[in-house]
């Protein structure tokens, strides 16, 4: 068999035959330890289809889990399968997987088109096919106009989109994105979120990690929460939120006269308690954040209170993690 120097034959990306009954992602009792430190501890889950957000603080084990899935790390315990195949032993499933690593370093001397098409050829595509596919995915992520510009001249958001394009070039069934929104400007965030939502609509299995709850909320309702290497929650974000609503939430209001405002809100049914961190701040405790937020503007306007800010300190990931782990705010 002579080498295919012409590279004009028809390419192939999916010669490996997956187990059709197996889920896209399967982890059974997976742990990863470094000496006595567990980066990931006894994770069990199966994912197939739709967008799943992986939430966790820095060091929670998100990247470790993705690297295990991508065969970069070997599990200390447990079983990992991508489409029924062990990725540590066999790289074949990557024909159906796209991976966006969190590392910022890229090949700055390449254009986005060269970057995407070169790595597309590692899927077995011909040179010509890789070029066509690169055009397609760069257009999909909105980089068609600047496809022939060097990556070194790209902004952070454009670089992230180029990485996503590189991951989509083999038309994967499973896409894993490690912190794709980190460091992006608002426009890039919106574009990337749209791309991820679109992939979910196309029926792909998408795993996307972040440590910012609001980002994940805008993309998907299906979430996994990791904390200190443990799987804290897996399911629908609203269900988790409802569960959280059984625990008092806090609303902090900065105003000129905290005690006067307290008199006006104390009669609201949903208010369960009030405290004063200082003279200008008022903290309301409630099980029903939505009801309070609905009534609060009217009370403020009717009584002409001068309010500088309204904040929900419990509505971030740290607080949710705090509730899930300790039953109280962090």
């Amino acid at each position: 068999m002579m080498p295919d120097f012409d590279q004009d034959g028809k390419g192939q990306t999916k010669q490996w035959q997956p187990d059709l009954t197996a889920p896209a992602v399967l982890l059974e009792g997976v742990s990863k330890s470094y000496g006595r430190i567990f980066a990931l501890s006894n994770i069990t889950m199966a994912l197939n289809g739709g967008v799943t957000g992986v939430l966790g603080m820095n060091g929670a084990g998100k990247s470790t889990m993705f690297k295990l899935l991508m065969g970069k790390l070997k599990p200390s315990q447990g079983k990992i399968r991508l489409f029924g195949t062990d990725p540590w032993k066999n790289p074949a499933p990557y024909a159906r997987v796209g991976f966006v690593p969190e590392h910022e370093k890229m090949y700055d001397w390449m254009t986005a088109h060269q970057f995407v098409s070169t790595f597309a050829r590692l899927n077995g595509l011909t040179r010509a096919e890789a070029g066509i596919e690169a055009d397609r995915v760069l257009n999909f992520v909105g980089l068609a106009d600047v496809a022939h510009k060097k990556l070194g001249q790209y902004s952070k958001g454009m670089r992230q989109r180029a990485k996503i394009a590189h991951a989509l070039v083999n038309d994967p069934d499973l896409i894993i994105l490690d912190e794709p929104l980190q460091g992006c400007d608002p426009l890039a965030r919106t574009t990337i979120m749209n791309v991820i939502r679109e992939l979910g609509r196309m029926g792909r299995t998408v795993l996307v990690s972040s440590h910012i709850l609001q980002e994940i909320e805008r993309i998907t309702e299906q979430i996994i929460i990791l904390h200190n290497g443990r799987l804290l929650a897996l399911g629908n974000l609203h269900a988790i939120r409802e569960k959280l609503d059984q625990i008092p939430h806090r609303i902090t209001i900065e105003t000129d006269d905290a005690k006067a405002l307290a008199k006006d809100v104390i009669d609201m049914d949903e208010v369960q308690g009030i405290s004063f961190p200082d003279q200008k701040n008022l903290t309301i405790q409630t099980h029903n954040l939505g009801a309070i937020h609905a009534q609060l503007p009217k009370v403020i306007v009717d009584h002409a209170h001068k309010v500088h800010s309204i904040d929900n300190p419990d509505d971030d990931l740290a607080s949710i993690l705090g509730y899930l782990t300790n039953g109280g705010g962090v």
């Binding site: 991508m70 970069k72 690593p101």
Partner: peptide, 10 residues
């Protein structure tokens, strides 16, 4: 960290 690009392929 760029090895991830190569090894994410079959």
């Amino acid at each position: 960290g760029t090895m991830h690009f190569m090894l994410a392929k079959p």
